[in-house]
């Protein structure tokens, strides 16, 4: 059952991720990206990490993608895309060659990969629960965790700095 669910979710994830790129309409792209986030949350639930699943939906699907949709609606990108974007033959050839090369490199790299399995006897199924996650974050990985928060602070200060009204500038 779980295995079937995994393959169903994975194929859905890949399909939606592809549709993000293929869709002509940017709003459709964003909506497919939101479905992709949901399927990734489904993967987290399969791994028994409910906290990560919920936070993934709250942060990505609930906040960041709303802003994406917001900006796309404001810019009204849908109008231009309906006519179809012309791609020159040269960039088509370049794209094919680059994509093919990447494909070959990926196959070469993945050929000898060993998947790090897990030992069912020592594996802790509760590892994704919020208590365990909090303990790990605040003991073992305290420094990276705090540094990440400093990074967020810097980003916030930068955003305020950019959005601030300069002397003599008038918006309205």
């Amino acid at each position: 059952m779980t295995e079937n669910l995994f393959y169903f979710l994975t194929s859905l994830t890949l399909l939606c991720a592809l549709m993000v790129v293929i869709s002509k309409n940017p709003v459709h792209s964003v909506l497919f990206l939101i479905i992709t986030f949901f399927t990734i949350s489904g993967h987290y639930i399969l791994l028994n990490a409910q906290f990560l699943a919920a936070v993934n939906i709250i942060v990505y699907a609930g906040a960041i993608m709303v802003l994406f949709l917001f900006v796309i609606m404001f810019l009204n990108l849908g109008k231009g895309a309906e006519k179809g974007v012309k791609t020159s033959t040269l960039s088509k050839i370049a794209g094919t060659v680059a994509g093919g090369l990447l494909f070959t490199v990926m196959i070469a790299a993945l050929k000898d990969v060993e998947i790090a399995g897990y030992n069912p006897e020592t594996y802790n199924s509760q590892i994704g629960m919020v208590e365990n996650l909090g303990k790990v974050l605040f003991t073992e990985y305290l420094l990276p965790f705090e540094l990440a928060s400093v990074l967020f602070l810097v980003a916030m200060v930068g955003a305020v700095m950019l959005g601030k009204r300069e002397t003599g500038e008038q918006h309205f």
Binding site: I34, A54, I57, I58, A61, V66
Partner: peptide, 16 residues
């Protein structure tokens, strides 16, 4: 065990 976050997540989707 994440009931509050579930509510919060669903509420944040309401805007779609």
């Amino acid at each position: 065990n994440i009931g509050v976050l579930y509510i919060f997540g669903v509420v944040s989707l309401g805007v779609y």
